[in-house]
Design a protein around this nucleic acid. Sequence first.
DNA 1: GTGACATCCGTAGATCTGTCCGGATAAAAA
DNA 2: TTTTTATCCGGACAGATCTACGGATGTCAC
Lengths: 130, 130
Amino acid sequence: MSVTDHLHPIDPQRVAHARSRLPSADDAARLTGLLSMMADPVRLRLIYALDVAEELCVGDLALALEVSEDSVSYALRLLRSAGLVVTRKQGRVVYNRLAADFPEPLRDTCLRRLVTLTHRTDDDPADTGG
Amino acid sequence: MSVTDHLHPIDPQRVAHARSRLPSADDAARLTGLLSMMADPVRLRLIYALDVAEELCVGDLALALEVSEDSVSYALRLLRSAGLVVTRKQGRVVYNRLAADFPEPLRDTCLRRLVTLTHRTDDDPADTGG
DNA sequence: GTGACATCCGTAGATCTGTCCGGATAAAAA
DNA sequence: TTTTTATCCGGACAGATCTACGGATGTCAC
């Protein structure tokens, strides 16, 4: 066998501690499903755009993001079925906006704090304090 | 052609506003790369485990998460190359822990706030109490 | 040195995802 | 009613990702 069964934990206490606090597989699946929606450049920027512009239709979104309308349409389809985006139809135009219950922490973290954090400036070396 | 070029925005002002504040494609790619690391059940729970247990070896991690060692090993490989996890080797055991510069907002948001938020209890209306 | 163990690495196959294309639907204009 | 516009949907194809396996490396106990 290439891998042993590792029947005897090396640090049983920590294993037990981790196990007791770990989210259930079910919760983890729900959460990663949500995070997956943010983990795509088109969807992330689309959400960003809706966050600042309040509401936009598919064509305008494509223009703003500089991607194809198909791409935006597909992204919206997923976001809609995840309940993150809602639509309002007026005439033949469909306006999209973030759902009222769009997770605030996600919006705050992903759209604001992390953008800054991941924005490398080339003179921002990792602090070698260790 | 199946899709028009949509040369004339329906709401030029909002498009311009969105465009001016949109993160660059480059920043978006970096950010989604980071988010992708969280958007997987094994990796998310692995990070969760390291967050509460401080440091764990591959075998113990597999025990805690109830997944194969291969699975954990692969997850760690990715996390390591993303700079999110660092290792300490002692004898033949490799201990893993979250990198010192692991994005705090990610940790806070994904491991604490969102787990609660996505944990459906069927009687948990949005509590606006604070 | 030999054997057992903890872990890593590379690769092949299955699977999931995103993009592109053609066509369908609905509403406004002519 | 016919045409144009805005958008959606389904399927094919390509690319990314995960899993499982075999084997390699380094360490500890004899």
